[in-house]
């Protein structure tokens, strides 16, 4: 985040505050003696443009992330799930993600799915995320802020998207090559494809930690 960007933001009205729904799954919630909360790992915070919001991650994601020893959380931005609707565009939703990120006990990894990837990327421009994972990004902002604190970035897209201009642009922006997963970009919350995708993300996260 550059100083000028901060000055600009500090001088524009803050988005209307909303009571955000945040779903949390800690390793201890699994009641599995084998799985220990590992404080060395960074927590994970997910968001998606799916209308269910945080609840979309309840089926599989949060438990899977928690079973890797990480604190797993998901946030519903304004208008999704249990969070009341309020005015504001992508910036306001990025604000929701940042506000959720600072309630997580440690420096968190941001995972964004679809438009959620755009919000996560905007949020990473003003919060020093421990990592940024973009899953099938959509409607990415043209003016992308440089991520604060230079976090590692992972771009995962479905096989059908690899050639799309949008994905290319995002990959160029961060100077990375996208990973691909089998399955449809909108259907990542359960099923075999979702398992594969999560495995890829978690092993990437583990590799960053070392």
């Amino acid at each position: 985040m550059s100083l000028t960007a901060w000055i600009r933001r500090a001088r524009t009205p803050e988005p209307v505050p909303v009571r955000r729904e945040i779903a949390v799954f800690e390793p201890a919630d699994l009641f599995d003696i084998e799985i220990k909360d590992n404080p060395e790992t960074n927590p994970v915070l997910c968001c998606t443009s799916d209308a269910a919001g945080a609840a979309a991650f309840n089926a599989l994601w949060l438990k899977r992330i928690a079973s890797s020893g990480r604190y797993a959380a998901a946030v519903s931005v304004r208008g999704q799930g249990g969070t009341p609707a309020a005015v504001g565009g992508a910036e306001a939703r990025a604000h929701d993600v940042v506000q959720a990120a600072v309630t997580v006990p440690r420096q968190t990894v941001l995972i964004g799915h679809r438009e959620g990837a755009a919000w996560a990327a905007l949020a990473a421009g003003r919060y020093p995320a421990a990592g940024l994972v973009l899953v099938s990004p959509q409607r990415f902002p043209k003016q992308l802020p440089k991520p604060v604190g230079e976090p590692p970035v992972l771009l995962v897209v479905s096989e059908s998207e690899t050639q799309s201009k949008e994905v290319q642009a995002v990959a160029d922006e961060y100077g990375i090559t996208p990973l691909t997963f089998a399955g449809a970009p909108d259907d990542v919350f359960k099923g075999a494809a979702a398992e594969g995708l999560l495995d890829a993300i978690l092993s990437w996260l583990d590799a960053q930690q070392r």
Binding site: A10, Q99, V102, T103, Y127
Partner: peptide, 14 residues
């Protein structure tokens, strides 16, 4: 609050 918080770690907005 908005003029005092640390730029990359905002205070809770409530």
């Amino acid at each position: 609050r908005s003029q005092t918080e640390i730029p990359d770690f905002p205070m809770p907005d409530d």
